[in-house]
Design a protein around this nucleic acid. Structure first.
Lengths: 337, 337
DNA sequence: TAGATTTTTGTAACCCTTTACACAAAATTT
DNA sequence: AAATTTTGTGTAAAGGGTTACAAAAATCTA
């Protein structure tokens, strides 16, 4: 049925001959309405094309069936997978989700959080946290909005905070051990920005694994530049090449870093894997193009789990699950090593 | 200020000694409150940490300051750029945006639209439309919710419908002319699914341009497979190779198609660009990895423009802008041709 | 068949804002 | 100082649902 007039539950009540309370009960599946009445009401709803006004419902119930995900930069190929996992589960449990892209802007992030509180979202996914909590997320819990850190987390986790992530330490440990098992000893490490838990863990794992295996970690082979994009990988590699001695392998804490490295290597006629082993992290789907070995961090599943946890918290208020959930990564070996 | 008690405008009124009406006026910047009162109220708001309940406001105003974007699959690398453009402008004009991922499921898309109407979003971006309108979007306008098609559009545009897209026809025309200018005559065309406007336009442009240039279009060199992913590009190319005569160039209606083609070509020792020219479409940032020439469809700008149009419609109800906005694409030449 | 019990339905308050309108206070004019 | 205008503030009614509670209707019991 067309028409721009707004239908309310009152209209349905009037047309069907029942009271608003009864209609409301039908809409909300409260099982106190006789089958006969229910059918009649449903039919009228169908006929009139009535859709409940969720806003009014939210106001009354103080629940909006809305979640939000805050990310730094959605064009980072890591996020779409994560988001699609979240969306999938959220959808299945009848939540809509706001997408908040902070563009690396702290003030924007803070304002987003304020807005989300105003908009009364039921819960929030945070994938922006640095180790030292530049942004104060507890304003959310002060407003009774639970949140879960996804992928990245702050140094310490408070009560009422959840974290779902992949085991970055194990990921790198596994990868490095694999590389070593190939007889490689000289490994350069592009570490990425150390204020983030993920990159922090990865570097830690590298150092400790090398040490355990009795191998030397050269300072000039560790690059902790601020970014983890292609450009940084490219520049790191040029610098590496300028040095007299090349390592046998470059391990990159992200795939874009590895792509940049690959480009620099190609340009300098250094063949992968013949002259140099190369490994990335995150298993970007385009890594296959250059046969890049990588570590699959299971991003979609990460999103799914995060959504399960958050919605669980929402439903039970006190969830049985533990505060931290760590998923296993998977080593993906292709031709680059 | 911490605490889980919910603050309302009444609390602010009581504490500040003014009425709710006055407080509300301050919050909404209605200039009828004296400077002195305003400051006092603002200070109390700050002190108490009061945040207006947007839900209640939305109910009263019948406006939610919320938009939604419906896409088919957010992991398609085309979308994040588009979305970030939309988000950027939406944010700057104080809108939040719902992300709706249909996973190519028509029923899910319909249900999403129903939900969005229930949630009273102010406007919607649609990037899912097939030429023949499988989904009925007019339920949105029936509910007074404007929408704009982004990138893809249906065959005919009704009144009250907007479209913002890139000029797909011109894009391919330009690319094909460039290729021809290089002395190439035999061009294979991976066309993608023809039920979508974008791919439809691209194929049309190919055929007409070739004809205008007096070149032959071989049926067996045109692949209109249902998908436009890597796999399809790979399979198309294997098939192509099996045929006795190879073309001199493969034009792909998407970059993933080109990536798949590249893989198949490499595996069969056909060198790009020496033995085969290759061109993609969409200028995926990882195309650079293999030196893929492509067409930049300006996705971020597309998103920005779409957001401008939609919000314009929202504000003015009748916008000055025309119903269709077509942005120019840009040819990106790299080593692959 | 009256009375008790169970099932179904209706009334009205509430959720938190916004805003039309009325009124009070202050400023200005006469 | 009274009358008029301007400015600032308060009251109360929406907005569209949900839900506790009361009431009516239907069913059952003896």
């Amino acid at each position: 049925m067309k028409g721009t007039e707004k239908l309310t539950i009152k209209d349905v009540a009037k047309r069907s001959g029942f009271s608003v309370a009864t209609v409301s009960a039908v809409i909300n599946d409260v099982p106190i309405v006789s089958e006969k009445s229910k059918n009649k009401i449903l039919q009228v709803i169908e006929e009139m094309g009535y859709r409940p006004n969720t806003i009014a419902r939210s106001l009354k119930k103080s629940k909006t069936s809305t979640l939000a995900i805050i990310v730094k930069d959605i064009t980072n190929p890591f996020y779409p997978e994560l988001i699609s996992g979240i969306e999938e589960v959220a959808w299945s449990k009848n939540y809509e989700v706001f997408l908040c892209n902070t563009e690396n802007d702290i003030e924007k992030e803070k304002k987003y959080i304020d807005n989300l509180i105003s908009k009364q979202v039921d819960g929030v996914f945070l994938s922006t946290s640095s180790l030292d909590r530049i942004v104060d997320y507890t304003v959310l819990s002060d407003s009774n909005i639970p949140y879960v850190f996804v992928n990245r987390k702050p140094n310490v986790l408070f009560d009422n905070e959840w974290f779902v992530g992949t085991d970055n330490y194990a990921a790198v440990q596994k990868a490095i051990r694999y590389i070593i098992s190939k007889g490689i000893k000289d490994i350069a490490f592009y570490a990425g920005p150390q204020e983030y838990w993920t990159f922090n863990q990865r570097l830690l794992a590298f150092k400790e694994t090398m040490e355990k295996e009795g191998l030397e970690v050269k300072d000039e082979w560790i690059f902790t530049r601020e970014e983890f994009n292609e450009e940084t990988g490219y520049n790191n590699t040029l610098k590496l090449i300028k040095d007299s001695k090349l390592p046998e392998c470059i391990f990159c804490s992200s795939d874009p870093l590895a792509f940049g490295a690959y480009k620099a290597l190609s340009e300098n006629n250094i063949k992968v894997p013949d002259d140099m082993y190369l490994m990335g992290t995150d298993n970007n789907k385009f890594g296959e193009l250059i046969g890049l070995s990588s570590i699959d961090m299971n991003n979609k599943q990460l999103g799914r789990e995060a959504a399960e946890v958050l919605i669980d918290v929402l439903k039970n208020k006190e969830t049985q699950k533990k505060n931290e959930i760590i998923l296993p990564p998977e080593l993906i070996i292709r031709s680059s090593c």
